[in-house]
Structure formats: C-alpha cells, structure tokens
C-alpha cells in the first residue's frame, strides 16, 4: 500500500490523477478506524496534511471559505464569532483529541448522515469546491451528498474548500446524544435566523439518509416572524417544530428509534429557534 505525501495542491491532484482509486487521508479519525478494523484496505493513500492550499479559512465581505483541512479545533477557537453555529457544531465533535485532527473536508468526504458540521452547512446553502487535474467545479452541498456516506465526488477529485454566504443574525446548533462528548448524534439541528435575507434556515442531521433541509417549515416561520423586533408568536414556533419533524425521514437503528428521532427534531427545532430569538 504505497503512500503519497504531496506538499502542494498540484502534486496532490497529480497523485489522484495517477491513482484515482487512492484513499484520501485527512485527519484520519474515520479512515484509521476503518483500516485498523479491516473494514477498508486502501490500495494507495494520498495524505493531505502537508498541503498549504487546503489549510485555513478566508473571511470575505459576502462569503466565508473554509479550507478542507481546517480542523474542528481551529473552527472552535478562531471562528466562534464569525461562524457561531459552525463553532457550536465543531465543539460537539468527539473529544479535544479528535477535534485537533478531524477536518471539515473529512466530514464532507465521509458524508455520514450524522456528520456534525453538515446541517449547519446545508442550512446556509454551502457550496463544495472540488478540484482535479481536469479543472474545478462547485456543487451545492445538497447535490454533493447523494446518500449515506455517498457523495458526487469523482475518484480523481479532491475536496478543496467549502463556502457559505455571510449572513447576519443569531444561530444555534443543538446535538442530542447520550452525553455531551464522544457521541455520534441521535439527532442534530442547525437553525439560523438570517436577518440579512429575512428568512429562517433550518437543517437536521441523523434523521435521514442525508442531512435534511426543512424548507416548508422555514418558509412558514419566516412569514410569522416580526423581523424588526425579532419575535415570533409561540404557536408559529410550535408549528415550525412540527413541520421540521414532518420533513425528517428518520429510521430506527442501534442509536435510537424513528419515533424518538422525529420527536427530537421537533424539540431541538423549537429550542434552537427560541434560543436564537432570545439571543
């Protein structure tokens, strides 16, 4: 099993072009577990941690760009005021040890239904940047994640960054699990009261094959909110919660039941919206 250790983006793309079947190694917190437990036997590994183009983030007037190798710890420490919901999501990931290595790009590449950053990214209509020697393209996150742990990434493509529009207004991310640390979520909610565009954005994780956007619920509650006072009638919040639960597509598995997850979506949706409006 050869390993390539490219030190810049072009070299990484050349490696992937030569061996499109190579497994991409970002933080390793998913890949190493699969390799150790013999669930994955890569023919070839392209290790990404030396590539400066994938690190860091950029804050522009209208857009935030997160490099694929941005770690959860960096998000938590450096982006808490710029991307508060993403920082909240990052802080729920695993443990400090996991957050020091795990990356946004890895979360996208793994595309688990329980990926902790995905609901927030989906709620903000994130766009995933993919590069290969053939060129670059951008996909909406909704088009990028095609199913549980399945993406539209072509074998020779590398996730280089993910972008979201900058919006004003309060955000909240809530994760439900047996304890605060070290859990894969039973259900997760990201709610953004986007005062720039005067619309509520809401998306959910672990309650469907992919992260789920509650578009109808968003529309109804956005119409009910008083955008100048940032208040919302309580019955509209309850209705929003029910509509979010309605949009979810949970299954029963070893972590929870479909009924409990649907209930949890309603509770987390209402709680997150109330916290946003109280902020």
């Amino acid at each position: 099993m050869p390993i390539d250790r490219p030190t810049d983006l072009d070299a990484a793309l050349a490696s992937l072009s030569d061996v499109p079947s190579a497994h991409l190694l970002a933080g390793g917190t998913d890949a190493m577990v699969e390799i150790t437990f013999d669930q994955r036997r890569p023919e070839h590994i392209v290790a990404l941690r030396r590539i400066p183009e994938l690190r860091g983030y950029r804050v522009d007037d209208d857009e935030l760009t997160f490099g694929a190798m941005l770690t959860y710890t960096q998000v938590e420490r450096e982006l808490a005021s710029t991307a508060p919901g993403l920082a909240m999501a990052a802080r729920t990931v695993g443990s400090p040890q996991i957050r020091n290595t795990g990356t946004i790009g890895g979360n996208l590449g793994t595309a688990s239904p329980a990926g902790d950053t995905l609901p927030w990214l989906l709620a903000l209509d994130a766009r995933v940047e993919l590069r290969s020697v053939r060129g670059s393209r951008e996909l909406s996150l909704a088009d990028f994640v095609t199913g549980p742990k399945r993406t539209a990434r072509e074998p020779d493509e590398l996730i280089t960054a993910v972008r979201v529009p900058r919006v004003e207004g309060p955000q909240h991310v809530a994760k439900l699990g047996p304890r605060n640390a070290m859990v894969i979520s039973v259900a997760m909610a990201a709610v953004i009261v986007d005062t720039t565009n005067r619309r509520v954005r809401a998306a959910f994780g672990s309650v469907g094959p992919r992260p789920i956007r509650a578009s109808d619920a968003e529309q109804q509650v956005s119409d009910a909110i008083d955008w100048d006072a940032l208040t919302c009638p309580d019955d509209a919040i309850v209705h929003f919660a029910d509509a979010c639960a309605e949009a979810s597509q949970p299954i029963s598995d070893h972590r929870s039941t479909a009924d409990y997850r649907r209930h949890a979506v309603a509770v987390l949706a209402a709680r997150s919206l109330r916290r946003c409006l109280a902020a």
Binding site: M32, V33, F37, A47, Q97, T101
Partner: peptide
C-alpha cells in the same frame, strides 16, 4: 477507535489519539 483517549500523545504539539494517526 478514538473513543478512550488512553493512547493520547502530542503530534507537532497537538494532543491527538495515536490510534487515529497513520
């Protein structure tokens, strides 16, 4: 599998689980 922390060490000064490092 990165759950227990008993293999924690420093990689370039960062605390990591060494079971999750290639």
């Amino acid at each position: 599998q990165g759950e227990c922390g008993s293999c924690s060490l420093y990689l370039d000064g960062l605390l990591v689980n060494s079971c999750c490092v290639l």
